[in-house]
Amino acid sequence: MTARQRILQKLRERRGGPLKAPAADLAIVSERDWQPEEKLALFTQMIESVQGEVHRVDRTHWCDELASLLAQRHIQQLLIPRQHTVGQQIRDAADQAYSAWPRLRHYDQTIEQWQPELFHEVDAAITSTRGAIAETGSLILWPTQDEPRLASLVPPLHIAVLEADQVYATFHEAITTQQWANGMPTNALLISGPSKTADIEQTLAYGVHGPKALLVLILESSAPDASYKDNIQ
């Protein structure tokens, strides 16, 4: 018999007899009664409490805001997605810009082909998100071919673009609404702030293995759309 068979057999022939599985009642982690504006406010409060930086920007000129944030931080090389609209809009903005943009880079090769550059040269990366979670201040990312896993991890600055209407109240709401259980990507992530540690005498230090800073750009439409208004009343 293999180890597998022996372990499973032992579990099956449990001395105490069969066990009954108690039913789930997940209301405590799912039922929230928050309006969109409340969710945005809570998300902001939560992620800021762990050193995330939030900028609510109008979608018509968010790239201007981005440009000034990058300039403030003297970013030299910015990793952007090639296909996602986030990347396209940045390229367009950079093309038309009067002022200088960082060098824009794409994750076109496998990591093995450009590991030293990614690790040593790229000093910021921008990615899209699949939404966020208000309760914990978390961004949801499903890395793709266009926005691979290490984009949000290796460069010292990670900028995440979040659509204002994509904020879920809870993690439970996010996974059920987006039906995660029907098919998970190879890697799914919740990101709540920049990388940190308290391993040295409980003292918080940021940027231990991942980004030292996390910026969240929340894209809003200047005229709040109708559904928002309905909800607020």
Binding site: G16, G17, P18, L19, K20, P22
Partner: peptide, 8 residues
């Protein structure tokens, strides 16, 4: 048969 968690 064990079914529930201990409750005070």
């Amino acid at each position: 048969m064990k079914t529930e968690t201990a409750q005070t």
